[in-house]
Design a protein around this nucleic acid. Structure first.
Lengths: 248, 248
DNA sequence: GATCATCCTTGATCGAAATCAAACCGAGGA
DNA sequence: TCCTCGGTTTGATTTCGATCAAGGATGATC
C-alpha cells in the first residue's frame, strides 16, 4: 500500500479537509488508515442530480474531479444557485440529516465519500480535521457574502464580469493561463447555469456576454472557450475595488 | 468571583462559542479561567462603526446585547449588507488579519471581546470551542445561502415578507410573542438598513411595507412596532415552501 | 413649545432587465 | 443528407423597481 496509491487521489492537501496520502506528506499514518477504511468513490454524469433537497444525506464528500452546483428551487420553478463545487471542495455538513439544496453534477464528476457516522467519529477524535473544516467553511462564507454583494447590488454587466473574473481567477491558480495579463479558460457552466448563479435570465446573460465581446473585454470561440486579453480591464468591469492581481 | 458574576453576561450557552459562566452549568472551570483572563467588554453607540473594512482586527467577539450589521460598500456608494449580528452571534475570524467588511452598530451594543492571539491559542488547546465555532459558521453559511435566494430571485414584496419572517422568527424564540399565530416585535432596522439588506432602495421598502399593511398581512404602529396577525399568511407571502411553524 | 434633523411616505417618471417570440448553430442519429 | 434537439443569440415589448422630487411624522434639543 505504501506509495502505490499516489496517483489515486488528485486532491490537493491545502484545500481538502481530509489528508489524502497521495499529496500530503505530513499525514499521520493512523489517521489515513481510518480514512481508508471509511472512504469510497462515486461517479456521476453531467446533469445527474447527486442529492435532492430534503433527501436524507448519509455521507459527506470531497470533490476529486469535475464540477457540481448547489441550488435552491422555489415551487414555481425559480432557481438560485448558492454554491459551486470545484475539485477539492467539500460537500455536506456534519451533524445534519437532510440536504438543504439540490446538488447537481454539471460535468462528469468523481466524489470521494465518507459515511457520515464514521466521519463524525473521526471529527471528534481528530481536532486537526475540525480545524481544517472550520477554515474551509469560513472561506465559503466569505465567498457567499461576496455573492450577496453581486446579487444585491451589481448590474447585469458587472455580474457577468464578476463571474468571469472568479472563474478565471480560480482556474488561473490551477489550470492554464498565460502570464502578461492574458488569460484563457473554458466556461464550466451553460448560459442558464450562469443565469441561475447570477440571479438573471439566460437571455440577459447572453446579451451581456455579447456586449463584453463587442467591447473587446473578452473573446469567445464556440460558446465556451473564453480569452481575456487584459485581466485588469475585466476587473474594472466588475465594479469592485481595483485590487485584482491575477492570483489573489 | 464565584457566582456573583451571574448577571454579568446574558449570552445563552446554546448559541455562543464561549461558555460563559452566567448561563452554562457544564463549563469546565479551567477553560473559564483562561477566558476570564483574556476577555474584556466594549460598548458602542448607534451608528458607530465598530470596524472598518480593511482595518486590522486584533480581536474576536461575541455580541452580548444589541445589534450590529456587516456590510460591503462599493466605491460609488452602493452598499450591501451581508450579515446581521444579534445577541450571542460571533464576530471575527480566527486566522485573519484584516476585516473584510464594515461592522456598524445599529443600536447600543455590548461586545464581549477576546484578543486574537490568546483566543487562537485557546482554539488550539480546546477542541470543543473549535467544534462550536464550526457549527455556528455552518449555520451562518446556511443563512447566507438563504439570503442568496432572496437577493437573486425574489420580488420586492417577497423580500420584505422574508425579512419580516426572519426577524419575527428569531425574535419569537427569544423575545415576546403570543401563541395563536399572532406575533409582535420591533424592527431593529431603519428602512434604509432593510434596503441594504434586501438589495432594494429605501423607497421600495417603504412602499412594500405599506402594501403589506394595506393588505392586512401586518400592522404597524410608529414606524417600528410590527404586529403580524397571522404568521402563516406572512410565510405565504415569502414565496418559500409553506413549512413555517413559528419556531423552525 | 418652536426648531431642527432624521426617518419615513407618497407621487411621477424612467430605465434595466424580464418576458415573449423567433431564429441560429453545431452535434449526433436515422 | 436531412432532421432533431439542446444550447444560444437576437429582437420587440412590458414591467418592476430605481430614480427624482416633494412632503409628512417623530423625537431630540434648546
Amino acid at each position: 500500500m505504501a506509495d502505490t496509491g499516489l496517483a489515486e487521489v488528485h486532491v490537493k492537501c491545502s484545500s481538502c479537509p481530509i489528508r489524502h496520502r497521495a499529496v500530503c506528506s505530513r499525514c499521520e499514518q493512523d489517521e489515513l488508515d481510518v480514512l481508508d477504511r471509511i472512504k469510497y468513490y462515486r461517479d456521476f454524469t453531467p446533469g445527474q442530480t447527486i442529492v435532492w433537497a430534503g433527501d436524507e444525506m448519509d455521507f459527506v464528500a470531497s470533490v476529486v474531479t469535475g464540477i457540481a452546483t448547489l441550488s435552491h428551487t422555489m415551487e414555481d420553478g425559480r432557481r438560485q444557485m448558492v454554491g459551486l463545487l470545484l475539485p477539492s471542495d467539500f460537500l455536506g455538513r456534519p451533524g445534519r440529516e437532510t440536504a438543504p439544496y439540490d446538488v447537481v453534477a454539471t460535468s462528469k464528476i468523481t466524489l470521494c465519500c465518507f459515511r457520515k457516522g464514521p466521519f463524525e467519529e473521526l471529527l471528534r477524535s481528530t481536532p486537526s480535521i475540525n480545524q481544517r473544516l472550520l477554515e474551509m467553511t469560513l472561506d465559503e462564507l466569505d465567498a457567499a457574502r461576496e455573492w450577496m454583494l453581486i446579487l444585491g447590488r451589481k448590474t447585469a454587466r458587472e455580474k457577468i464580469a464578476s463571474l468571469l473574473a472568479i472563474i478565471g481567477r480560480r482556474d488561473a491558480s490551477l489550470n492554464m493561463s498565460t502570464a502578461d495579463g492574458r488569460l484563457v479558460f473554458d466556461l464550466p457552466l451553460t448560459r442558464e447555469a450562469m443565469a441561475d448563479y447570477l440571479g438573471l435570465t439566460l437571455e440577459t446573460v447572453s446579451r451581456q456576454i455579447s456586449a463584453l465581446k463587442r467591447d473587446g473585454v473578452i473573446q469567445i470561440e464556440g460558446n465556451r472557450h473564453v480569452t481575456v486579453p487584459d485581466f485588469q480591464r475585466l476587473i474594472e468591469e466588475t465594479g469592485d475595488d481595483t485590487d485584482g492581481g491575477l492570483i489573489a
